[in-house]
Design a protein around this nucleic acid. Structure first.
Lengths: 207, 207, 207, 207
DNA sequence: CATGAATGAGTATTCATTCAT
DNA sequence: AATGAATGAATACTCATTCAT
């Protein structure tokens, strides 16, 4: 039993090493330019072992993407409490920025987009279960603000996307076209303008 | 003389056939999954001829991208005249939509993004000379509207990007994750909301 | 342990088979006219395996040349004892002849010379570490003969080359221009004349 | 008629240009690494014209080699007069050196040797009609010296080769292994030693 | 269970030679 | 007679995947 669990932990750590090596390589070079042998070497396992864990390169890729997304799905259970709308929007946007820019989400998105022709269902999954789900969580927050009377009643499905579109324009879009994109100095200013704009449109009229 | 010009015309048509075949294949399958031999076959030339026209696969790719972009660069010299701001924004956005959705710009962007790790300068070129230039043209229109007094004076550099971000959220962003994305039925409604939002923020106060 | 050593032996034998096939083909047809696929087939391995062993055609070529040269480097540690000068020269020359004519050194030299424009450093290596080193060994023998009083003191650096030049004139030079060159019937007579000539020039005067 | 001869001269000059371009390229890079298209470009003709003049790359190569050799065949009609043997040997050797080192005979030999497997008859021709014929001319001179009583009667067939072997050892042999070989500073000293050695062996005894 | 050697099916690119004009 | 565009066959090299040990 001790032996069995020791073995299981070895297996798990190999799996983790493979995923890490694969992720790093995919992020660096994209899917097709990375050889399985390189991933195996970087993970310090044989190619045969690699194939024991992941039946194909495609599956390994999917696992990398799913793992990356699952890491970031959990952490958005916001209780709006009595925090002012402006602060809430700022906090949510800041959390998102951290994830996109410090985590390698932008690069990951690029890789997923690159593989749309060969792994359409995976890209779809990322979009639906990653991006849209996040929008759903954000929308829930907006709905709460409406309920609290901070914002006018309106189509929050659309307005959340409008807000997201503005924010991504400055933080994600340019990153798709350059591996070296890093947080611009004036990003906070731009974010502030996005938030102000949003509030200007949707803030409830003060009586 | 007749010979020379005859030859030139043949050469031109072959070049065009190659570009067309390459474009179709790249759009369909991405860069690395397309073999030069397939492009040659589709263009009805030998691989050797293909290489006479384009010295490498990379160069062919760059030519495809540049040609696609050059097709769309010319057509945005708008005289705002006395057209109302709302109509102008609608017209510009409609033109953009046609290009992105009917032309295959969205798919092309996907392919360019896919090649960021191996052709960073090309992606950069597309971003700077394609996307940013277009934003510049749009911004010029906005500036005119400000000058005309329709819009409040404001930082149009940022506001044009905010508008673009909102619009792309509904028309470009989802297309990056799916080859089959087609114009949603309610796209016009969403665009209308984007325009209204924009005007709500920046429209000059009526006296 | 058994596995590892088993594998090592397999690998060694494959490597040897590849080198043999490569050598035969290069000797037969020269470097550029031999396809890696042919070598692989002759060695009974796939091209991929071939490339596991030798990273490029150039490296394979270099390995073939180096192996051939290393085979012949060891065997020239002559103790002159009291053997007469004439016999010593005869023995050395005979050994050299065997190597050049029975081994395929002449053909190998041809191939190396052919690749001077594309592998200058390899040709240089063959010249400096193969040919010149051999001359050095020969010269050491000559020096001993001088020390022993059999030969006059003289510039043995040059005289050894003069002797070598004469001998090669009959045994190497014609072989460079014909793949079918084989030991001429009267070679021994010619060699004898070379030796006599050499001794006539440098033999110490009898008192 | 004037037109016809004009045309013929054009044709001739094109032929010459092709031969020149081919020669330069072959000398620089060897046979197989030179593309016919490059030769055509360097000669300022189309590939089709090139093929009008030379039916194949092999034939062009043969023509280059033959032309180079024919250039050097003519000029060795030496009247020994009363010139001393030593001077005669020096003059002949000097002429040979000029040809090998200043002309590009050494490089040409290398290229011919490289093509032995694919053009054996050409290499044979070079050896028999180039090298051996030259030895024959040299031998005739030696025979005259014997007849004049300067040298002992002996097998001049062999002795001429012995002399040639010594001389080539210092001037041709190293050049086969390096494209950059240039006349060594002490070449004249070495040649002098070769001549002295030769005379020491074969000079007639003074009475 | 883990290994790493082995492979077959590709891939981009080149080049001697031909042919329509 | 001259062109230069066109080609088919070849070539070095790669990689996802399998398998004997």
């Amino acid at each position: 039993m001790g032996l069995a669990s020791y073995r299981r932990s070895i297996v798990k750590s190999k799996r983790a090493a493979i995923l890490k090596a694969a992720r790093e390589n995919f992020l660096e070079s994209g899917f097709s330019r990375v050889a399985m042998a390189v991933i195996a070497r970087d993970a310090d396992v044989s190619t045969a072992t690699l194939y024991k864990h992941f039946a194909s390169k495609d599956e390994l890729f999917a696992a990398v993407i799913r793992e990356a997304h699952s890491e970031t799905e959990a952490n958005m259970h916001i209780d709006i409490g009595t925090t002012p709308a402006h602060t809430i929007l700022k906090n949510i946007t800041d959390a998102y920025m951290r994830q996109q820019l410090e985590g390698q989400m932008n690069s990951l998105l690029r890789v997923v987009i690159a593989e749309v022709p060969s792994a359409p269902q995976l890209a779809n999954e990322v979009y639906e279960k990653g991006i849209l789900v996040r929008y759903g969580q954000f929308r829930a927050v907006i709905d709460s603000l409406v309920a609290r009377g901070d914002l006018k009643p309106h189509d929050t499905e659309i307005s959340s996307h409008c807000f997201g579109g503005m924010v991504k324009e400055f933080s994600v879009w340019p990153a798709l076209f350059s591996q070296d994109f890093s947080r611009p100095d004036d990003l906070d200013d731009k974010i502030a303008i996005c938030i102000d704009s949003y509030l200007k449109i949707y803030q409830a009229e003060k009586i």
